[in-house]
């Protein structure tokens, strides 16, 4: 069992006393996050308190020193692949290949989820305002446009759990508006989001999680 008190299945993600140490230095402890469908958590805290580290723990890129992660009430060791198949992570580095075009990049990201549909790839890029540049190699695009290429995954993905680490950097007001709308849409359709952002978002159901209190 993952927790002393059984976690209902409707918690997409829950953590139990998550603690992380690096080289003997405790970064944070006692992380008890719970995330239901339709909820968004905004991780807050000053620089260096471990926001990105927590994100990497939640996406299994790092393993916690102690504590457990549960997906739909099941411990992660049991449902690791199901969990990974249901999550989408966009980190600081956007995983966009500058040598490839926007279309090739997005087609690969979609293929990683088993979506092989050139038309919807094209449509997703158009909806992100990249309709005119979809066939240019990404090293010819601006930083904001490259960011948009990475974020156009959000249009296509079937993953329920989104982990977004500073998704709005380099985006202009229009881009921020587009993303905000997409996040809201995801929440409305029963998805869940964990977000790190220094910019305010115009989204209703945001729960703030202050990491400063958990820092050692």
């Amino acid at each position: 069992m993952c927790m002393d008190v059984p976690v209902p299945q409707d918690y997409l993600l829950s953590t139990n006393e998550l603690c992380f140490e690096r080289d003997g230095r405790r970064l944070f402890e006692g992380i008890n996050l719970r995330l239901k469908a339709g909820e968004m958590v905004l991780i807050e805290g000053p620089n260096g308190c471990g926001k990105t580290t927590l994100m990497r723990l939640l996406t299994t890129l790092l393993s916690p020193t102690s504590g457990a992660l549960c997906y739909r009430g099941e411990p992660l060791e049991k449902v690791r692949y199901e969990y990974l198949a249901d999550l989408l992570y966009i980190g600081h580095q956007s995983a966009v290949k500058l040598a490839l075009s926007a279309e090739e990049n997005l087609a690969w990201m979609a293929a990683s989820e088993g979506i092989h549909d050139p038309k919807s790839v094209r449509a997703a890029l158009r909806s992100m305002g990249l309709g005119a540049v979809y066939d240019l190699p990404c090293h010819q695009l601006s930083a904001g446009q490259v960011r948009r290429v990475a974020l156009s995954r959000l249009v296509l993905t079937r993953a329920k759990l989104w982990f977004l680490d500073e998704p709005l950097t380099a985006l202009d007001t229009e881009g921020i508006g587009l993303i905000t709308g997409r996040l809201q849409g995801h929440l409305d359709s029963g998805g869940a989001i964990v977000l790190i952002s220094h910019q305010d978002l115009a989204i209703g159901a945001v729960r703030n999680y202050d990491l400063t209190k958990r820092c050692a």
Binding site: L61, L84, L87, Q93, A95, K97
Partner: peptide
Amino acid sequence: AFDFEDGSLEQLLIAPQ
């Protein structure tokens, strides 16, 4: 090296396989 720099490696490591 390139995959590490642009974040593709992270995506690879969290692929469900």
